[in-house]
Amino acid sequence: MTRTLAALPGAARRLCLSRRRGEICTREKGHRGLHHRRGGSLLWNDLQADPPECPGAGTIAEPAPTLDDGFPGGRALCPVCWAFVPIGAGGGLSAHDTWRGDPTRAEADRRRDWFNAYGW
């Protein structure tokens, strides 16, 4: 039996995605109280969270290989946050926020297909 991601239990659950020391909060989006990483003792509040800007900005990069449909459209893969990011005029990754999830299911599917084709 083949199960798609959308059919898996919890697939529609949206995580908070606040980060501390690169670890992502595993509570549901909009939760009250401290952020935490399940399976560890890492707890934090909003003031202790990592800034949204990724420290990978400026890293020299080349466009990632493309799928048949052209995804990721000339963007490079950030080695810090794993976001697909435009390359600036100097050949470095443009300033960007740390990847915190795909905005749409379609983007998530394309991203999954890319990682299945090219790995990390």
Rank of each mutant, 00 (worst) to 15 (best):
P9H: 01
A11P: 01
A12I: 00
R13L: 09
R14M: 07
R14V: 12
C16Q: 03
L17W: 10
L17D: 11
S18R: 12
R20M: 09
R21L: 14
R21D: 15
R21Y: 12
I24P: 08
T26S: 12
R27M: 02
E28T: 09
K29D: 08
K29C: 05
K29R: 13
R32Y: 03
G33N: 08
G33H: 05
G33R: 05
L34H: 08
L34R: 12
H35C: 14
H36I: 00
H36Q: 09
R38S: 08
R38G: 07
R38W: 00
G39V: 02
S41C: 03
L42T: 11
L43K: 10
L43F: 14
L47N: 14
A49V: 08
D50S: 12
P51E: 13
T59M: 08
T59P: 05
I60M: 10
A61F: 04
T66K: 04
L67F: 03
D69W: 03
G73S: 07
A76F: 04
L77H: 03
C78A: 12
P79F: 06
C81E: 08
W82F: 14
A83E: 14
F84W: 08
V85C: 09
P86K: 07
I87H: 04
G90W: 05
G92F: 06
G92M: 05
L93A: 11
L93I: 09
L93K: 09
T98C: 15
T98P: 01
D102C: 15
T104L: 02
A106K: 08
E107Y: 01
D113Q: 10
W114C: 01
W114Y: 02
F115W: 06
F115R: 10
N116V: 07
N116W: 03
A117Q: 13
G119N: 09
W120M: 13
